[in-house]
Amino acid sequence: MSELQVNIAGVSFKNPVLAASGTFGFGREYGRLYDISKLGGICCKAVTLEERQGNPPPRIAETPSGMLNSVGLQNMGVDYFLGSELPFMRRAKAAVIVNIAGRTAEEYRAVAEKLNDSDIAMIELNISCPNVKEGGAAFGVNAASAANVTRQVRRHCKKPLMVKLSPNAANIAEIAAAVESEGADAVSLINTITGMRIDLKSRRPVLHTNTGGLSGPAVFPVAVRMVWEVYKRVKIPVVGAGGIASWQDAAEMMMAGASAVQVGSAMFLDPYAPLKIIDGLRDYAAREKLQNISEIVGSVKAYE
C-alpha cells in the first residue's frame, strides 16, 4: 500500500485529494490540461433527476481571499450523466463520486436509485447547496430533515453514501450525528457559506440571486474548525473541504480529522493545485517517515 492510499467507507482511493463538486465539472475540461486519473477521485458537479438551468447571471463575485457563487445546480440530469459523462470519466480512469441533489427526498432517492448499477465509487448527498429555492441546504440545516433524506436514500442506495454538510447549520456536528445514525457511510464538509456583495455604484447585489455561497481561502479556518468538531462527534470518516489551496492546508485539515480532502476554488487560480497538493503530501509523508498519510488524521493535540 502506498503512503498516500486512503480508505473511505470501504472505498480505496489512490490518494486523499479529491476535486470538489461543481469546480471540476465532469473532468473533461481539466482533462485538457492533465491526466485526471492522478487525482484521488472526482466529486462531479451536482446531478439532479431532470435537467436544470440554474440561476441567472452574474453567478460569481470576487471577495477578499475567496469568491461567492450562485450557479444553482445547472446540469443535464442523471440520465445524461449516465449516458455521456460517466463513460468519459471511467475511460479517463477517474474514481467517480457522484454529487446528487433534489427538491424533495423522493427526488434524491430516485437519482440514487438510477446510480445503483453504475460504475461509480460513491454517492455524495448534497444537502447543502445554498443556491436553490427548494431542497438543497433546506435539508442540511435541520437535523430532522437531514436525517429523513439520508434515511430515504440509504434504504434504496447500493453505493457507499457520503453526506455533504452545510456550514450554515447552527450546529454542524449535530447534523453529522443525525445522518450517521441513519446510515451515512461518511460525511463531507463544508459546502459554501451564504454571503453577499453589493456594487457601490449601482447599489445592486453583484449576484443576480442577491446572495451566494462563499468559498476559497477565506473559509478555510471555519472549515478546519467544523471538521474538527464533526470528527470528535462521529465515528464515520470525515472528508474536509473549504479553502484548501496548498499541501499544508490539506495536512492541516487532515490533522483536524479529515480522512481525505476536496479541492475546489483553488483550481480556478491554479488548475494544477490538486496535483501540487498530492506531491506536497507525498514529500511530507516521506519527511515525517509516515507509513501512510492517514497516520496524521485527527492528530491535532488540542488543548484540554
Binding site: 461543481g22 469546480t23 471540476f24 465539472g25 473533461r28 475540461e29 481539466y30 485538457r32 490540461l33 458537479k45 440554474g54 440561476n55 441567472p56 447571471p57 452574474p58 453567478r59 460569481i60 463575485a61 469568491m67 457563487n69 450557479v71 445547472q74 453583484v206 483550481m267 480556478f268 488548475p271
Partner: peptide, 17 residues
C-alpha cells in the same frame, strides 16, 4: 462578456441566456 470563474468550462458560472 460575463463574470467568469474557471475560464475552461468546468464551473458553469459565466452563463448567457
Amino acid at each position: 462578456e460575463q463574470r467568469m470563474g474557471c475560464g475552461v468550462g468546468a464551473c458553469r458560472v459565466c452563463a448567457v441566456k
